[in-house]
Amino acid sequence: MKITRLSDLADAALCRRLVVKVGSSLLVGKDGVRRAWLEGLVAEIAAARAGGQEVIVVSSGAIALGAAKLGLDKGGRGSLADAQAAAAVGQIALSGLWAELLSAHGVTAAQLLLTLEDLEDRRRYLNATATLTRLLDAGAVPVINENDSVATQEIRFGDNDRLAARVAQAAQANAVLLLSDVDGLFDRNPAEPGAMLLPEVRGVTAEVHAMATGGSSSGMGSGGMTSKLQAAEIAERAGIALAIASGLYDAPIARASAEGIGTLFLPRRKDAGRKAWLGGRLRLKGALVIDAGAARALAKGSSLLAAGVIRVEGEFQRGDAVAIRSEAGETLAHGLAEYDALECARLMGHNSAEHAALLGYAPRSAVVHRDQMVVL
């Protein structure tokens, strides 16, 4: 059984494990924490748990809370130093708030702070998976946020939408619900006359991306519609449904599921664990540009051979994740390189029989083996 409509998000038989992402503008208003609204959301989460669902929360708001306490302008986002300081202060308040409100329903909250590197490195990703599984088995509600106090530009997600999708992947969740300041994806800017809400999307295409606008309307968060579509792409490859719905109303989960107001992105396929991790990676060390013949071979399930490589981009080592692109610039696959960038450059365009002479040692069978690759 699969999730096919928004109402399925409230069905424990179809959605045993749900990730709920809460945006900054929903948690923090001009006068501080929107406590009454959050109490209602927590009541919904507690009711879902009582109904047999496991819930993971990805919560924004630490920077906004910390900035208010420290008196920082621009919501604490004026500089990286401001954001890190605000997060350090705000994270205590944020985790305490969730713990207090969940405890009122007899539910234990657990805090996890993650960076991009925690979920891009395979071993740390598996550690996060084990921790989430154990917490859920113990009856806790994990409350997750990006570790903004230490995350620099190189190791940060930059938004909690994509973090939520990666957490769902790691936790083997059935669905993600992104609560935001919009009802869902519209066919054009929702401020334009005649804009229509799309109730369902089957596959995030270039046309779907063209409908997105970049920024958050509140100016408080870091993720706009573009980041939500990127989150949907991560989820759909892992067999996870993702919904975008407005959190501006009371009982937002019920509004999305019972009234069907939002956009549901249906999963396209369910890759095996390692390939789902590869396909959902957000940071790649380089790229291999390939010719049309190699592209056709990849589509049929073949490994990538050096003869089909026409350009090498970036600096990477053996075992690093790289993109495999067409001559037109389309990303066809992600994979783990069997050679470093310099060796790939030396081998590209050459047949396998020439490799030993070019390298001076017995070569591996492929530049990227099909077992270490996911075609997108």
Rank of each mutant, 00 (worst) to 15 (best):
A287Q: 14
P252G: 05
K275H: 10
I253D: 00
G279F: 01
M225N: 04
D271F: 09
A238I: 12
A241G: 13
L284P: 01
G247E: 02
K275P: 02
A256G: 11
I261L: 06
L264D: 06
R268T: 13
G279H: 03
I240G: 02
P267R: 06
S246K: 04
D250L: 08
A276L: 00
A272V: 11
A231L: 10
I253N: 05
I244M: 09
D271N: 10
T263H: 05
A258E: 15
L264P: 04
S227D: 01
M225I: 07
A238M: 11
A258I: 14
A232D: 02
A232I: 02
Q230A: 06
L278I: 14
G260H: 00
E259F: 07
L278M: 15
S227W: 08
G280A: 08
A235L: 12
I240S: 05
K228C: 02
G247P: 02
E259L: 15
M225A: 02
A231T: 08
I253G: 01
A231C: 10
G279P: 07
D250Q: 12
R274C: 03
E236F: 00
L278Y: 02
L266S: 14
G262M: 03
L229W: 09
D271Y: 11
R281M: 14
I244R: 07
I261A: 09
F265G: 09
A243Q: 09
R237F: 01
M225R: 07
K275V: 00
G260Y: 00
A256T: 09
R237P: 04
K270I: 00
R255Q: 13
T263N: 03
I244D: 05
E236C: 10
S257K: 11
G247H: 00
M225D: 02
G280W: 01
R283C: 06
S227Q: 08
S246R: 06
A243T: 07
S227R: 04
L242R: 14
I244T: 08
I240P: 01
G280N: 03
R268I: 05
A251S: 13
L242F: 04
A258W: 00
R283N: 07
D250E: 14
T263L: 09
